[in-house]
């Protein structure tokens, strides 16, 4: 398990580092999307989650869910485009799951990607992702999770 400044960054996931989100291609071709532990640390305790509805198409870098923490509201932006095929009912019931388990039970949406091959190439993974998060944290003056 890799970490950057105390924030867990699993090396097997694909990241859009700028938007602080991850993607994982599942065996059935779907893509699971979530916030990184760094994003959760910046946000603080998440108290509300409103995903886009199942069946909606979301373009790359557009919002698939809105989350609220400490009176801050902001979008979670998808790393690749696709149609929302599932939203996380467990997170609807307990948005704090996003903080507790951002790469597991706290996932945001599942997508049927429209161009995984074309769009996923620009995402970062493994050591590249760790280095990119380190640079982002440095630029943002982040001390650690």
């Amino acid at each position: 398990m890799a970490d950057v400044r105390g924030c867990n960054v699993p090396e097997d996931l694909m990241y859009n580092v700028e938007n602080n989100v991850w993607a994982r291609r599942e065996a059935d071709g779907a893509v699971t999307v979530g916030l990184t532990s760094y994003a959760c640390s910046l946000a603080g305790q998440i108290v509300s989650y409103t995903p886009k509805k199942v069946g909606k198409s979301v373009k790359q870098d557009k919002s698939c869910a809105t989350v609220e923490s400490g009176k801050w509201v902001g979008p979670a932006k998808v790393p690749v485009a696709g149609e929302v095929t599932a939203v996380n009912e467990a997170v609807s019931g307990n948005p704090g799951l996003i903080n507790d388990d951002p790469y597991g039970e706290g996932w945001l949406v599942k997508l049927q990607p429209s161009d995984w091959e074309g769009e996923s190439g620009a995402l970062k993974t493994g050591a590249d992702a760790l280095a990119a998060f380190e640079a982002k944290m440095d630029a943002e003056g982040f001390e650690g999770c």
Partner: peptide, 14 residues
Amino acid sequence: DKAVLGTADMTVIA
């Protein structure tokens, strides 16, 4: 933007 505020930490910004 976050650069003006010198941090991306939402609690600190508030």
